Amino acid sequence: MEFYVDGGCRGNGTSNAIGAAACVMRLRHGDTETWTRDLPNGYYDPLPTNQRAEITAIILALEIALEKYDKLNRRPWLDVTIKSDSRYAVNCMTEWVYKWSTNGWINAKGGEVVNRDLIQKASDLDDRLKEEGDVQYVWIPRGDNMDADDACNDALDEQN
């Protein structure tokens, strides 16, 4: 399974921020399937930010991969690749999450890891998926991620 993910936020860092995440799955023969998710508006959850949207997009891809796997009649070894134009999101999943979980979710500056709730959720989903196969996170240039970027912007447009 190959996923392209993107997250975005308008009004980043303000009380009226809106955020969305998008996931595009490449199917055989060049077709795609697309999912989006709006971020909570901050009333009871943290305010939307670009970083929260990017991690939410990865969560969305991991959830979809697990859902699709659960619907299969047999249990093949999975090979999942999640491509993102966010170095932050890719580094969270490939490097930093291991350090943070070992350090009690304290960052290098001695404070609590920002977006811990989402990163832990993504890590838990990643662990579940890795029981069934391989998961890779790959950084790609923004220009190579236009389908996910467009889907994310469409979802943001619908919130306005």
Rank of each mutant, 00 (worst) to 15 (best):
I140Q: 06
D127C: 08
A108H: 13
P141D: 12
R37P: 00
L60H: 09
T32K: 10
V114Y: 04
E2T: 14
M1Y: 09
S86T: 05
P76E: 13
A65V: 13
A61D: 03
T14I: 07
Y88N: 01
I119P: 05
W35G: 00
L60W: 02
M146N: 15
A17C: 13
R28I: 02
Y43E: 10
I59L: 05
K71H: 04
Y98A: 02
V114S: 01
T36F: 08
N160R: 14
S123T: 15
K99I: 13
A20C: 10
E112K: 14
A65N: 05
A61M: 09
K68D: 12
M25I: 14
K121H: 11
L129D: 08
S101Y: 05
P48E: 12
N115W: 02
K109A: 09
V90C: 09
P48I: 07
N41P: 03
W35P: 01
G30T: 03
W100A: 06
F3C: 11
G133R: 05
Y43T: 12
V135L: 10
K71Y: 00
D127R: 15
T14N: 06
T36W: 01
E132F: 11
W77L: 14
P76H: 08
L62N: 10
G104E: 02
A151I: 08
G104T: 03
T81C: 12
V135R: 02
W77G: 00
G104I: 05
D134V: 10
D147C: 06
A21I: 08
N160C: 03
Q136K: 15
E33A: 15
C92E: 06
D144E: 15
T49N: 09
P141W: 02
R28V: 04
D147K: 14
D45E: 12
T102G: 00
G143A: 06
S123H: 05
R128S: 10
W139L: 07
V114I: 14
I106V: 14
W139N: 08
N145R: 01
T32C: 10
N91L: 07
G30D: 03
A21H: 02
A21V: 07
T81P: 05
K71S: 10
Y44Q: 12
N115F: 08
V135W: 09
D38R: 13
A89W: 08
G104L: 12
